[in-house]
């Protein structure tokens, strides 16, 4: 299956090219950008990133763990301290708060790895160091017969160069 690589200089042109390609039914595409540009990222993937769910699960686990840990430990061997109740919610809230942040943060990181498919072993054949410079890449995988059409479309959208990459 051939793949075409278009190199762009403006993020707006990439986003426009992505929208045009998707409009014509070419959905197997990948972009490479040197910095985050919402216009490109939203054109390629419309849904918000799934990292949200990881943070939520992490945070909820943290708050439950925080209260469960403190309440259980304080009651497992009850020792009276300063005449305070064994199950003192105000001080335990601090532990629960810290664990909410800790678990939420760690789960966010795991979410980044899972959703972003990292670590990613070998770099894609279409990727090159120029895309960590200041150029943008757009790779479209397509059927042999569509190559000419996509080539034309990419050039129409101000691609500085278009080439075939092994895929």
């Amino acid at each position: 299956m051939p793949a075409l690589l278009g190199v762009f200089e403006q993020p707006g042109h990439v986003a426009e090219a992505v929208r045009k390609l998707k409009g014509r039914g070419y959905t197997d595409l990948e972009t490479y950008s040197p910095a985050p540009f919402a216009e490109i990222d939203d054109a390629v993937i419309e849904k918000p990133s799934g990292v949200r769910l990881y943070t939520l699960i992490g945070g909820l686990t943290g708050v439950v763990t925080g209260f469960a840990l403190t309440l259980w430990m304080a009651n497992d061997w009850q020792i009276m301290l300063g005449g305070k109740p064994f199950s003192s919610i105000p001080p335990y809230t601090i532990i629960a708060f810290e664990l909410t942040i800790l678990f939420g943060g760690l789960m966010t990181f795991i979410g980044l790895l899972v959703v972003g498919k990292l670590p990613h072993g070998k770099l894609d054949p279409g990727y090159s160091a120029r895309f960590s410079g200041e150029e943008f890449g757009l790779v479209v995988r397509c059927q042999e017969r569509d190559v000419a059409e996509i080539d034309g479309l990419l050039r129409d959208q101000h691609a500085a160069e278009v080439s075939l990459v092994e895929s």
Partner: peptide
Amino acid sequence: QGTSRQWKAHNRS
């Protein structure tokens, strides 16, 4: 590699 999937997850994180 700076793919849109990666940037999107990164921004959200």
